[in-house]
Design a protein around this nucleic acid. Structure first.
Lengths: 238, 238
DNA sequence: ACCCGGATCAACCGATCGGTTGACATGGCC
DNA sequence: GGCCATGTCAACCGATCGGTTGATCCGGGT
């Protein structure tokens, strides 16, 4: 679709990973790949957003786990939306998927997620944020190279395990926790009692219990300890 | 102490990381370092132990998070102890640290841990297992090179954040959970009630409560949900 | 206009948990 | 042979949790 992109011009790539060693390793590795030119590297999400705006790369290789500051998902959202480097007052929560598509075509770089975990929550959030592909670091380098080229053309590239999970999710839509339920869950994971949670969130204890009941249902557990375990497992919590 | 090792001969290195991309990146990166020769790479703990026995490298660069099979700590323990590649019927649990020292000196490779997390539990376990150094992937490549050379000479190399934690730990010895308490904690994290835990471990409900009380003390919490949260936080559980 | 999902609150009850105290057996250490 | 840590068990009590039912309010979609 995107026209042009004759195989003669190399893909202009921006690498974002908070681990210096990994970043340097990727650079060294990518140097051996043909048709790929690394034009910049970032160690934080903010840096990635700023550099993406400044350098206008074809593809951004993005790790989801970035130390402090905005996480990879948020960085992905901003880059895919073609946002400028300056910070906007936008709050990350809310629903509001739908980013990704419009973009404008020309400007917004494609974001290719390259990360360690293939958790449902991570995959879902990354895709909703507008990621063009989702690769695992356990993938073979050739696959990575191929995925970068694919992403440059706007084609989707998913690691096999990721693809499986996406399909499974399509077949059996997973119960999604509402924002409010996540609030309760967060407090719960601090070991707080219902009364404390209620006070913290300015609601009644009864409401907390109601939410908890729904959380139990959705997570398939029936105790608070179990809920915390599942939540940590699925990385629903920081 | 170890004599010899004139600066003329390069350090013979074995790299172990379950992520192919990271491994390839490290290889590419290390190719630019002087005095370091990568003589092998492993993608699992078992592979690392076998290759260490077979190739007798000077240093093993070890990630702690390895997919399935034995983890990095166990691999470190076996390599540092000079164990042969064949699998022994040994169970990993039990106490029995004390490996590390004896070793035999000449044969056992030095293990340099290179990982993402600087959790207290990880650091402690790695050091107890006989690791010569502990670096973070966020470290600068030059530090990595220096650490490898240091490790080859038996000198300890720690990333600054790791060193800080080690010192802090020396000053204020952490409460260590006993093996039994970890058993209870494991069940707890499954969301099980006291009665279920008691039945599973073939003890009385009263005993479970006693253990739980001690666990609360040691983890600094006072509810089961809190205990699970802290346990997951400190990676005391899988 | 209607209905539905989400969020809020209430009251109730039995079961479980959290905390305490006290006790006994085992094993290693001095 | 004592001493201490660890693991085991018991009984008790108040507080909390888990589960249920029912209700109100609001915003969105058909």
């Amino acid at each position: 679709m995107s026209s042009s992109t004759p195989t003669s011009e190399p893909v202009r790539l921006l690498v974002c990973d908070d681990h210096v060693v990994v970043r340097a390793g990727l650079l060294a590795l990518l140097a051996s790949a043909s048709g790929i030119e690394v034009i910049g590297e970032a160690g934080t999400g903010e840096e990635a957003v700023a550099l993406a705006a400044k350098l206008a790369p074809d593809v951004v290789l993005m790790d989801l786990q970035l130390g402090p500051g905005i996480d990879g998902v948020e960085a992905t959202r901003r880059i895919a939306a073609g946002e400028r480097g300056a910070e906007g007052g936008d709050n990350g929560s809310g629903a509001s998927a739908g980013a990704g598509e419009g973009g404008g075509g020309g400007g917004a770089p494609r974001v290719l997620v390259l990360t360690t975990y293939d958790t449902d929550a991570d995959i879902t959030r990354a895709i909703e944020a507008g990621a063009t592909g989702y690769l695992l670091k356990a993938e073979r380098p050739e696959e990575l190279f191929a995925a970068i080229h694919a992403a440059a053309q706007g084609r989707t590239a998913l690691s096999p395990p990721v693809a499986s999970r996406v399909m499974a999710q399509m077949r059996e839509p997973r119960p999604t926790l509402t924002a409010r339920e996540l609030d309760i869950l967060k407090q719960l994971a601090q070991g707080m009692g219902n009364r404390e949670i209620a006070r913290t969130l300015f609601i009644s204890e009864a409401t907390v219990k109601t939410h908890l009941g729904r959380i139990y249902d959705k997570l398939g557990v029936d105790t608070r300890a179990g809920a915390v375990a599942v939540a940590k497992e699925r990385r629903l919590l920081p």
